Amino acid sequence: MKLNKYSEASPVDAELSPEAEAVVERLKLQAENLFETRALLCAEAVMVTLNEAFDGSLSEEEAINLGSTFCMGVGTAGCMCGALAGGLASVGMFTGKGRLADSNAHARDCGKNLHDAFVRNHKTTCCRSLTRHVKNDSAKHFAQCTMLTGNATELAARIIIAERQDTHITPRKALAKGHVLAMRAGNVLRNVCKSVWRLAHR
């Protein structure tokens, strides 16, 4: 299926079926849950949720690792909101060349649609600006980032569903915190083993 590349309406604003709207809401809550339980950070939660829901090409570990670079405003730099960055990466994964289009031009359009919708909702994409008024209140800061994680997931999901014209989606159950922590521990152990092996074979 090829995209309607030059549709004037943003896919974020496309009218979805009641079933698709229910899917979007469930994905939003799933990403918020992953963040709220501290199983994953913002971008990781967005990417894992969307990758699994739409049968993306990444493993759970790959989605987490890719999202990890965007978290906390790109590694505490206070730059782009990590949740938005995770949403952009996810939209690219599902609208890029070879998935639904003949080139990446439309994926860029979809990315701009997500960016513009996020700015419309939150006035800025800058993590530092988004969190300025809550930076001294950890509870409010955490609540705001939970909301941003859910909203970025919701907006990205709306684009993906509208572009795929796919309403028959059954999101998988959210990853348990223990599952995620076990994957992270395995990652750390593998990296330690690789480092030891490299040192031993110098």
Rank of each mutant, 00 (worst) to 15 (best):
A182Y: 07
A200G: 12
G87R: 02
I161M: 15
L199F: 10
L40S: 02
A185K: 12
N4K: 13
R128K: 14
E60V: 11
A43E: 01
K2F: 13
D13A: 14
K194L: 13
G150N: 05
V188M: 09
L100V: 12
H141Q: 13
N113I: 00
M1V: 14
H168L: 11
A200M: 08
N191Q: 14
A107G: 11
S17D: 11
K97Y: 09
E8Q: 12
L189Q: 12
P18N: 12
L34S: 00
A117C: 08
T69P: 00
S195M: 12
G150S: 09
A156Y: 02
H141V: 04
Q144V: 07
A101E: 05
C81S: 04
G86S: 05
M183A: 04
V134G: 08
E25K: 15
N187Q: 15
A101S: 15
I160F: 08
E21K: 15
T37E: 11
N33Q: 14
G178S: 13
A101D: 15
A20E: 05
V192A: 14
M93N: 05
I159N: 02
A89W: 00
S68F: 06
M80F: 10
L3G: 03
K123M: 06
L3M: 07
L130D: 06
E25D: 12
F70E: 02
A20D: 02
V119H: 07
G150M: 05
T76K: 10
D102R: 12
G82R: 08
M80Y: 08
D109N: 06
F94K: 06
R132S: 12
Q144F: 08
V119D: 06
R38Q: 15
V48E: 01
M147I: 09
L40K: 03
N4P: 04
V23Y: 03
N33M: 10
L88I: 09
L66M: 09
P11W: 01
S138V: 15
G75Q: 07
D109W: 00
E163I: 10
A162Y: 00
S138I: 15
E8F: 07
A139W: 13
A182S: 14
T95C: 15
